[in-house]
């Protein structure tokens, strides 16, 4: 699904990531961990072509991101659900329209009715569907962001610190939702520095693989996790 071959990414004269060679198989579940500022978000952005590698090759769904047009990148993002760290929404639109946004922009408005109702119930936001994003709590924003990420039934779900602003109970609920999606065959990649979350996930999902960024390289984490 995603292939990194000797990938490096440099910015402002400094190399943030280097020598990355790995693959994310369809249906797999991955955590990416490491201290804050180590490059987790940069790695994720490389995975949905918001950033393009400065060296090496990244293939997503068999396409080399360096040679993709802007339209091709847009189409790629319709196949990837992303929960961003800052959970950005369109503040002038209510929650339900924000969640439906990936369907709206890809011309699949006809799907919105049924999928949206089910999804709102699944993430527990049915009562808050008409609220505007600034009126939501941190947990509600995270769940709305997850709902928006999965409404198109994407093949790959990427979450950047999805539990960063919420309490432990809500974190476990979100994790449970992501594990459910993985069991439905979706590939899941979660960046987090919360080791407790990783341990909780591995208890529920033994096949979860943990990657760590160390010395600008992405490598499998040790047994301590």
């Amino acid at each position: 699904m995603i292939e990194f071959r000797d990938v490096a990414y440099s910015y402002g004269g400094g190399e943030l990531l280097t020598g990355i060679t790995l693959s994310l198989a369809p249906g797999s579940f991955h955590f990416l961990t490491g201290p804050s500022g180590v490059g987790k978000t940069t790695f994720l952005k490389l995975c949905y072509a918001e950033l393009i590698a400065t060296a090496g090759t990244i293939e997503i769904f068999g396409q080399d991101t360096r040679s993709m047009s802007r339209d091709a990148i847009a189409r790629l993002r319709q196949r990837v659900g992303v929960v961003h760290q800052d959970c950005e929404f369109l503040d002038h639109l209510p929650v339900d329209e924000n969640i439906a946004l990936p369907l709206t922009v890809s011309g699949r408005e006809a799907q919105i009715g049924n999928d949206l109702d089910e999804l709102l119930a699944w993430v527990g936001l049915r009562e808050r569907r008409h609220a505007l994003p600034p009126e939501l709590s941190g947990g509600e924003r995270q769940r709305a962001a997850l709902a928006r990420a999965v409404i198109t039934s994407p093949e790959l779900i990427i979450a950047d610190e999805p539990t960063g602003n919420i309490d432990w109970e809500m974190s476990l609920k979100l994790l449970k939702l992501l594990i459910e999606l993985n069991r439905l065959g979706k590939t899941v990649l979660i960046a987090t520095h919360d080791l407790n979350l990783i341990r909780a996930a591995r208890a529920a999902q033994a096949s979860a693989r943990v990657l760590r960024i160390r010395n600008r390289r992405v490598e499998p984490a040790g047994a301590e996790l």
Binding site: R70, D71, A74, L76, E88, P102, V105
Partner: peptide, 16 residues
């Protein structure tokens, strides 16, 4: 710019 960024991230094409 922020709205456009969100739209791009959810898969909106430039023409849209």
């Amino acid at each position: 710019a922020r709205v456009i960024r969100v739209l791009r991230l959810v898969g909106a094409r430039d023409v849209y």
